[in-house]
Amino acid sequence: MPRCARIKSFDSIYHIMVKSVGGTLLFRCDDDKERYLQTIKRYQENFKFKVYAYCLMDNHGHIIIDACGADISKIMHGINQSYAQYYNRKYERAGHLFADRFKSKIVDSDRYLVTLSGYIHNNPSDIDGYKNNVHKYRYSSLGIYLGIRKDSLALVDAAFVMQQFSRDVKNARMDYLKFVQSCDKDELKRVIAFKEEKAEYRSERNIIVRNVEPEKVIDFVSKYTNEDGSSVKLKHVKNVKALKSLCAFLMRGLCDMRQKDICFVMGNITQSYASKLCFEGYMLTKQKDDYRNIIMDFLKEYAASY
């Protein structure tokens, strides 16, 4: 029986749930949860989507993702495939890790978004020791919301939900504390240092229109790297690795191109090589100062948003 087409739109916010196949533990240890969050961050830097909340349990996980104009299927396929490869190598196993496709539901109102964040943050209440202490669960974004844990990956935009309670940071945290009904409020008040912060919560949605033609990407990167753009389609050409890698990276993340489209543009290369180029382009933006700002510079020049 054919599967139903996933309901998607380019400007949607999604409730994503991932679940392991059978009785397999999706995350066998804390390092696995850390790896999954790091993988989300890597794809976030590529596709420029936002994460509003998350909670990772041992056999499933919840994430609220604002796709910001990107294709949610491409985002989640990349994240889950990358994590599954890591998992199978680490535990010397083969086969599927995730149960069928990831589940997604469009978040269609602010009220639903806020309620959903509370549901996600209360997931650890079923774990021994966390029923009245869900704020202490490390692999949930609740601690980030309440200001008791630093977002070391800079992954979560907590402000988008918190500003529904108040623009003032202190008041928003206090109101969100009250909203999390299943938590021990006295304990939460004790552990949260409500400072007299002058900051305000301000976060707006920014939908990126991802329709830049590949020729413009190649032209932009060739000027950025001072390399000959015509070399992108030539095989076995040395000294243009940065050009090809950065082109593939931008095409994949900011132009909504499929792997096979990138393969065609780059002279009918294999999909595995295209994937490798995308990753190498990402690493260049992380490791080389010359390319650290290429994403923002590209967005300023080409990718219109609203």
Rank of each mutant, 00 (worst) to 15 (best):
E187S: 05
G129T: 09
Y201M: 05
C55S: 11
F10A: 05
Q44E: 11
S222D: 06
L177H: 03
K103T: 00
S245T: 10
G229M: 10
Y291D: 10
R42K: 15
D11Y: 14
I148Y: 08
L26K: 03
L37C: 11
A248K: 05
E200P: 01
S230E: 12
L246D: 02
F165V: 02
S109C: 15
K178D: 08
T270V: 02
G118M: 12
L234N: 09
I7P: 07
Y112R: 02
Q85R: 11
N80H: 12
D58G: 01
K41I: 05
M1A: 11
K178S: 10
V212E: 03
A99C: 08
Y14H: 10
L56F: 13
Y201F: 15
M283L: 15
D256R: 10
A94V: 13
D32G: 08
K223H: 14
V134L: 10
I262L: 05
D108W: 00
Q181T: 14
Q81G: 09
I144W: 01
S272P: 06
L284S: 06
S230A: 05
L142P: 04
L234K: 13
Y291K: 08
R6E: 05
L254P: 02
N239Q: 15
D289M: 09
N239E: 09
Y176E: 00
D30M: 10
F27M: 07
S166M: 10
A158G: 15
A158H: 08
S305A: 08
V161Q: 06
S275M: 04
H135D: 05
K276A: 07
F194G: 00
L142S: 03
R111V: 13
Y273E: 06
Y282R: 05
L277P: 06
D71R: 08
G143K: 02
Y87P: 04
I262S: 01
V161F: 10
S125M: 11
K233L: 04
A242T: 12
G22V: 04
A193P: 00
V156A: 01
D297M: 12
D30P: 08
H62T: 12
S203N: 09
P214N: 07
Y91E: 09
N211I: 01
Y282I: 04
E280H: 13
S73P: 04
A193S: 14
E301L: 15
A158I: 03
V212S: 07
E197R: 15
M76P: 00
Y14F: 14
V191Q: 11
L142W: 11
M257K: 05
N171D: 11
N226M: 02
Y83D: 00
L234A: 08
K216L: 13
L246S: 12
I72A: 09
A154W: 02
S12G: 05
L246K: 04
A159W: 00
H121G: 09
A159Y: 02
E196N: 13
G69V: 03
L188P: 00
V156G: 01
D58I: 05
L243F: 14
D11A: 13
N226W: 04
D175M: 12
N211A: 06
Y273G: 03
K90Q: 11
S305Y: 14
V191R: 11
A158D: 07
D289V: 07
C247H: 07
I63Q: 03
K244F: 14
F165I: 00
